[in-house]
Design a binder for these strands. Structure first.
Length: 486
RNA sequence: GGCCCCGUCGUCCAGCGGCCUAGGACGCCGGCCUUUCAAGCCGGUAACGCGGGUUCGAAUCCCGUCGGGGCUACCA
């Protein structure tokens, strides 16, 4: 099988997670069959298309690792992969359709059309059932065009003919001819509609399989009609289940919160997002949740794609992100951590600071879900004095706190060997001597040292911070308690 | 309103007539571990929308019903 699939986003907004999922399935299918994955830009809607969005789409796919073999930027055998470059081609197909009697010029006003739709709806018929070819000669129509009248070009649907096709996901599909409206292929300004441009490109670029969201399922008869009108064989279609938000509605395309960019900025890893998205409507097998791209490529088939819509669950994505973060190569994790911390403290780290950080990182890697959480865990090592998290402070600095802090200072200040084990020994002895449990005795130290209740393990944190700084902070916390004993 | 699609734990997925007293994952709850928070480990919670058929036997097939969704533009 000569597989050529495409993803054809419209640059009218940031790369949407739904589009990314469609792209992902197309990519998996192409890679599985050793086929060609094509990226085309469907920018026929000139009014809403913007170049910045095209850039965002490209970088989104690249970031996700969905590399394309043909298309925008990489080129290919078939000329431009941007529809706005191919307007003449679409126009000439439309003209040809008219000349062959398969399409017609329609001069009717939108008011008139609306009336027809309303009438149809009242009589319980398909809204489009009454919008059919009003007749009239082509010569007459041409005269009116020449005299400056505006017209759209509509397909002249043969209502006696039903359209049947086999959808790879949904099985046999059948649409009656009179359920298909005489849809517009060329707007009155001469620009093509989505249906025309997309069908022409799918033929010209020899696309073998069209896999896209289920929202286009009911447009498929139109695309088949157009394809056949061009004298080409229909493509094979696969309509993927839609992605829903938690509200059970189509994932919002509006505000950028469901954009790939937004997830990227929140600190999600591309591998995690890839893995998670592939689980939306598909599964590797009955019980594997985490798997590699290669495993997915090896197993993928449209026939195994679920028919039901899927709710996008950020909880599970977050969990998966943590799994990937923990599995990340330590050197890679360190690189990410260094830049995150430097951003956070607003300066570059010195050599010895990087060593301290590197020592701490294994402890951090196993307790974060996002790279964006790293800085918060280790910030205390790179600032002169800590900002106390007030909630942590209030929760921890109770009656026993001064005692624990004072005794710790006593024990630690003369400690010659500032090692993890030595620190632990001293502090455990302190707990014993003061008759405090770990929670009461050690938590105040944690807050004094890191500023927060939540931090890497305590003895390691003290060791990493160093004797001078540590004791200074214990004293500072004690002073603060004395000044304000609540 | 019309056409179309879909209906298994709260969510994602497995199940393609007997292996299902329905399996895995997230979440949630409990336990272990433990200096916090996590992680890890162990255990638990929870679903075949409903009604009819077909069949020795149905989550799986058929019909109906109810529910959800998509489309219904000179958007894609």
């Amino acid at each position: 099988m000569n597989v050529r699939v495409r993803i054809a986003p419209s640059p009218t907004g940031l790369l949407h997670i739904g589009n990314a999922r469609s792209a992902l399935f197309n990519w998996l299918f192409a890679r599985h069959h050793g086929g060609v994955f094509i990226l085309r830009i469907d920018d026929t809607d000139q009014a809403r298309s913007e170049r910045q969005y095209e850039d965002d789409i490209l970088s989104g796919f690249s970031w996700l690792g969905l590399d394309w073999d043909e298309g925008i930027e990489v080129g290919g055998l078939h000329g431009s992969y941007r529809q706005s470059d191919r307007l003449d081609r679409y126009r000439s197909v439309a003209t040809d359709l008219v000349e062959r009697g398969l399409a017609y010029y329609d001069f009717r006003s939108s008011e008139e059309l609306d009336r027809l739709r309303t009438t149809a709806q009242k009589s319980g018929r398909a809204p489009a059932a009454l919008i059919r070819n009003p007749g009239g000669s082509l010569d007459e129509a041409r005269r009116r065009i020449d005299s400056g009248e505006k017209a759209v070009v509509r397909m002249d649907i043969d209502v006696s003919k039903s359209i049947e096709f086999v959808d790879l996901v949904r099985g046999e599909m059948r649409f009656e001819g009179d359920a298909v409206d005489d849809f517009v292929v060329l707007r009155s300004d001469g620009s093509p509609t989505y249906h025309l441009a997309s069908s022409v490109d799918d033929v010209d670029y020899e696309i073998s399989h069209v896999a896209r969201g289920e929202d286009l399922l009911s447009s498929t008869p139109k695309h088949i009609i157009l394809t056949e009108a061009m004298g080409a064989a229909p493509r094979t279609y696969a309509h993927l289940p839609l992605l829903f938000g938690p509200d059970g509605k189509k994932l919002s395309k509006r505000h950028g919160d469901n954009s790939v960019k937004a997830y990227r900025e929140q600190g999600f890893l591309p591998d995690a997002l890839f893995n998670y998205m592939s689980l939306l409507g598909w599964s590797l097998d009955a019980d594997t949740t985490i798997f590699t791209r290669d495993e997915a490529v090896a197993a993928f088939d449209f026939g195994d794609v679920s028919k039901n819509p899927a709710v996008f669950d950020t909880e599970k994505l977050s969990w998966m992100n943590g799994m990937y973060l923990r599995a990340m190569d330590p050197a890679e994790f360190e690189a990410q951590a260094v830049s995150a911390v430097e951003d956070d403290v607003g300066r570059d780290l010195e050599g010895d600071e990087r060593a301290v950080l590197a020592e701490m990182l294994p402890l951090v890697q196993e307790r974060v879900k996002f790279t964006s959480e790293i800085a918060g865990q280790v910030r205390f090592l790179f600032v002169g004095e800590v900002d106390y998290d007030e909630r942590s402070w209030n929760k921890t600095m109770k009656a026993d706190a001064p005692r624990a802090l004072a005794a710790s200072i006593d024990g630690l200040q003369d400690l010659g060997d500032w090692s993890i084990s030595a620190i632990e020994r001293v502090l455990r002895a302190m707990l014993e001597a003061e008759d405090l449990n770990a929670r009461k005795g050690l938590q105040p130290i944690r807050v004094a040292i890191t500023g927060s209740n939540v931090s890497p393990p305590l003895f390691e944190s003290l060791a990493a911070l160093g004797a001078e700084q540590s004791i200074g902070r214990l004293r500072a916390a004690l002073d603060r308690l004395d000044a304000d004993p609540d």
